[in-house]
Amino acid sequence: MPLHWHLKSKTLIDQLPVQVFPRAVFLGLAGVTMGFITIYFLKLYAVTYLHFTELMLFMLMYAGLSGFSATVVSVYRSLGDGAIYRKASKSDL
């Protein structure tokens, strides 16, 4: 079923660039920003030491959530582009 919004609505997802490389740069900058926010909160709560298992669990959750959020945003943007309905040309293969 088609989505009930279109690119004229100008949501946050619609502001992503259409090309792949600029979109990747934007999502990378979003990840860096999320990293700085995480470091800020670690300093705010005075977390100076983590046991190895706590660190691994933290890194696993952080990487998983970062990847998941970037994937969701990219998929929704791709659906808004109508890429699913375009036929592949010979130059795309």
Rank of each mutant, 00 (worst) to 15 (best):
Y85K: 09
G31M: 05
T71Y: 14
D81M: 14
F26R: 10
M56Q: 09
Q15T: 10
K43V: 03
K10Q: 13
W5G: 11
G35Q: 04
P2F: 09
F68H: 10
H6D: 13
A63Y: 15
V75A: 08
D81Q: 14
V72S: 07
L93T: 09
V32K: 07
L29Q: 09
F21C: 06
G64Q: 08
L7H: 06
T11C: 11
E54D: 05
M56T: 11
L3F: 11
T33V: 07
S78H: 04
A70T: 12
F36I: 04
H6Q: 13
S78W: 15
R86K: 15
G80F: 08
S69C: 13
T48M: 03
G35P: 00
R86C: 07
L79S: 09
L3K: 00
L12N: 01
G80K: 14
P17N: 01
L79K: 14
A46L: 02
F21M: 12
A63F: 13
L44E: 07
Q19K: 04
V18W: 08
A24H: 02
W5N: 12
G31D: 09
Y62R: 14
A70V: 08
G82L: 00
F36C: 06
G67K: 01
I37F: 08
I13K: 02
A83S: 13
A83I: 05
K43H: 07
Y40L: 05
I84W: 15
K10W: 06
H4N: 10
L3R: 02
V20C: 10
M61Y: 14
M34F: 08
L65M: 14
F52P: 10
Q19T: 12
G67W: 07
A83Q: 09
T48A: 01
V18T: 15
T38P: 02
V25T: 12
F58S: 03
K8P: 01
D14I: 05
I39L: 14
K87V: 01
Y85W: 12
K43G: 04
I37K: 06
A46F: 10
V73P: 03
G64Y: 03
S69N: 04
K43Q: 14
T53F: 06
V73T: 07
V18E: 15
L65N: 10
K10I: 11
V25R: 05
A83R: 04
G64P: 04
Y40D: 03
I84G: 07
G82T: 00
S9I: 02
L16R: 02
T38Y: 09
T71Q: 11
H6V: 08
A30R: 13
L57P: 00
M59F: 12
R23V: 00
S89C: 15
I13S: 01
K8R: 05
G64H: 05
G82C: 04
Y76G: 12
T53Q: 10
T11D: 10
S9V: 13
Y45H: 02
